[in-house]
């Protein structure tokens, strides 16, 4: 975007980015340092030897995957609908959807608990997947709708002249064209699902279904708090998300350069 041709200018640019990034880096350094303080790598060994850690990982993966699939499918439909169709009272629906973002989790617990018990979903993964997806959808729709707004109508019109239905427009235009933003949605949904703590804690009773976010609680007691191992668990918990970001970041850049829009 910025076009700097001269060498000193480019060095200056590089320097500027570096300087701006340092404040973001410092707390991360403090975190990693903290995770290695005291017993050093033993902290990681201790975290990894928590009895059920692999169970935790698997539960987190199941829940995240469920949420991501559900959010992706629902979001694509909904955002396409909001962006390219005539719907009476559309703004009202949209605001109703957005308002879902505002309720704090604590307030949701009691009603959700009641519902999950009465529907028999309590202590199943669905009890966590459904509310998490419900919480992620409004944000995802907001993003994707804005993105689809940016896809020229002419493309859809051309498709329609060719006799294609809305459905095939959806499959052949929306799905491939939204890949970049879908990658972003995927990441944020993953973060929301992977990092959630309260819902699995409350809605999953079976110890085998507990998630990775409960890991630090093995090192925090009423009168104790092993900061070093808590930070080590944090590093381990964050790793899959960072890796996912790294992979997807390539995808959404590729998605962009594929450039059907340009």
């Amino acid at each position: 975007m910025f076009e700097v041709r001269s060498l000193p200018g480019r060095i200056g640019l590089q320097l500027l980015v570096t300087l701006l990034t340092i404040p973001f880096l410092l707390p991360l350094v403090a975190m990693v340092q903290g995770s290695l303080a005291g017993a050093g790598f033993e902290n990681y060994v201790a975290v990894l030897s928590v009895g059920r850690i692999w169970n935790f990982f698997i539960s987190s993966i199941i829940i995240s995957a469920g949420v991501i699939i559900l959010v992706y499918v629902v979001t694509m439909f909904t955002a396409f609908g909001f962006s390219k169709f005539r719907i009476p009272g559309k703004e009202v629906y949209f605001w109703l959807l957005l308002a879902c973002l505002t309720l704090p989790e604590v307030v949701l617990l009691a009603p959700l608990f009641a519902t999950s018990v009465s529907t028999g979903l309590y202590d199943t993964y669905w009890a966590v997947i459904l509310p998490l997806a419900a919480l992620q959808v409004p944000f995802a729709v907001l993003l994707v709708r804005n993105f689809i707004n940016g896809i020229p109508d002419e493309l859809f019109e051309a498709a329609r002249v060719d006799g294609a239905s809305s459905w095939s427009g959806f499959i052949h235009l929306v799905i491939p064209l939204t890949r970049p933003i879908a990658a972003a949605v995927l990441i944020f949904t993953l973060i929301g699902a992977w990092n959630n703590y309260l819902l699995p804690l409350v809605f999953l009773q079976d110890p085998a279904k507990q998630t990775i976010t409960l890991l630090p609680s093995y090192f925090i007691g009423q009168f104790s708090h092993d900061q070093t191992k808590v930070l080590a668990s944090a590093v381990l918990t964050a790793l899959p998300e960072v890796i996912a970001y790294l992979c997807l970041q390539r995808l959404f850049e590729r998605g962009l350069s594929a450039g059907a829009i340009k």
Partner: peptide
Amino acid sequence: AALRPALQTAS
């Protein structure tokens, strides 16, 4: 937060 809803059911 965890206990209150849980107490209301047999689970």
